[in-house]
Design a protein around this nucleic acid. Structure first.
Lengths: 242, 242
DNA sequence: CCAATTTTTGACCAACCGTCAAAAAATAAT
DNA sequence: ATTATTTTTTGACGGTTGGTCAAAAATTGG
């Protein structure tokens, strides 16, 4: 049966409600401010009901992360449809990630907590697998683009280097810069005001370092970016040009 | 008076003991397993006494981070004494950080927690300032080396780029890769087995990307690294070649 | 030896996560 | 419509946090 019973619909809606409330709390009050009691109070159900949806707090957080990672991977998979040279598609992924970071600021809060504490391992099997699957799609999009660059002859990866090493670098750099960039003291020390723009330049420098052609001084990636925002992310453009 | 009273010495020793126990607990059981009660039990003093040393858990964590960041900055400041071209000194800083990460694995646990949760802001003013001061020395070592490269004519930073942007990239990349590299699922997805070596190559690629001469294909930075380990970090060599 | 001061203590509080028998609601059977 | 059965919801409860503070213990000074 494709249609759900009234009860099933109720449960599904309530799960959405829980996740919505949890995300807001996480963003507002941080990881420590996110309590199961508070969620229960806000949704006006008892705590036991919340625990019927998620076996523990970590499971809830993982579900939250999956929900938002899905948003990201959708943007990534849209990005790689960009019609251009592989490195332009890589730039498109960068733009996708920037849109993602702006549109879902709560994501950073979710993901970083998940990385740091050993949270994922407490989540239910199914949620762990689901999260891995989403991450896998993300990796596939990035690594696929890198391999596209190799196949097009724009990039060489002499052993023992691997295509995934480039991806690892981009991933680490992006994730790390976002966390470091959030701490004001660090930014004061460095004197950096616009972490987003800096990250963009850093990523291009990194790809130049792997000698991924066309290099940034041979090609106008700023206008590529404009095209990307116009052609692939027209609907999201507002989010990024604020 | 330079000499401390017996009592003062006792207090100082106890503080060290608390930090030692706390570090061990943090490494063993993670952030959530680190409890003030447990610390009190382990040092065989009451909880109140622990709170006489640190006004709250965050203050203790910050003190822990300072202690270890000091170890790191010492290595950094030794690294920049390496006699060679600026980019070689940059490589020396990379080696210093690698030694640091291996010798003080608990540091990662401390620092990442400090970055992620809004912990630092709850610490005492004095500890906050102390931590900023240590970070400042760290930034100074890195940015100083970058500026050395510019002065030597090995590197140009056309505006609006800044010297600190390179540092920001290295920082974010190093920090981020270490966190991502710790999660086994991510590494499985990427198929990366030796994150440390990958990070090393990533850093060199990044510096190549900024066109910091001599580029990695023009110079044998592996043997530079050997010289660094022999000349500057001879005593720490064992830690890194295990 | 006793009084003044400092240090240490652990009972105590509020908030947290997670459990589970009992209550309430929904469904099925008569 | 009424009763029996199943499902869902509840919130009191246990155990563990971080943090406080009056009272007890130890130290110091006279």
């Amino acid at each position: 049966m494709a249609t759900l019973s009234r009860k099933q619909r109720e449960i599904r809606d309530r799960e959405r409600l829980i996740l919505d409330v949890a995300r807001r709390l996480l963003l507002d009050k941080g990881y420590l401010g996110l309590s199961m009691d508070r969620i229960a109070a806000e949704i006006e159900y008892s705590k036991g009901t919340v625990y019927q949806h998620f076996r523990c707090k970590e499971d809830l957080l993982t579900a939250l992360a999956i929900q938002t990672k899905l948003k990201r991977v959708e943007l990534f998979e849209r990005a790689v449809t960009f019609d251009g040279r592989p490195r332009e598609r890589m730039t498109a992924i960068g733009a996708a990630d920037e849109i993602f970071a702006r549109r879902y600021p709560d994501y950073i809060a979710t993901e970083e907590v998940l990385y740091v504490q050993s949270i994922a391992c407490k989540a239910s099997e199914s949620n762990q697998e689901a999260m891995q699957a989403v991450d896998g799609r993300c990796v596939a999009a990035v690594c696929g683009t890198i391999k596209g660059g190799i196949e097009a002859g724009d990039l060489e990866i002499p052993p023992p280097r691997q295509a995934s090493e480039i991806a690892f670098g981009i991933w680490g750099m992006t994730f790390g810069s976002r966390i470091v960039g959030k701490t004001p003291t660090c930014m004061d020390q460095l004197g950096i005001t616009d972490a987003t723009t800096s990250l963009r330049r850093m990523q291009q420098a990194y790809l130049d370092g792997w000698n991924w052609r066309p290099l940034s001084h041979e090609w106008d990636y700023d206008s590529t970016r404009d095209r990307i925002l116009g052609e692939v992310f027209a609907d999201e453009r507002a989010a990024i040009t604020v």
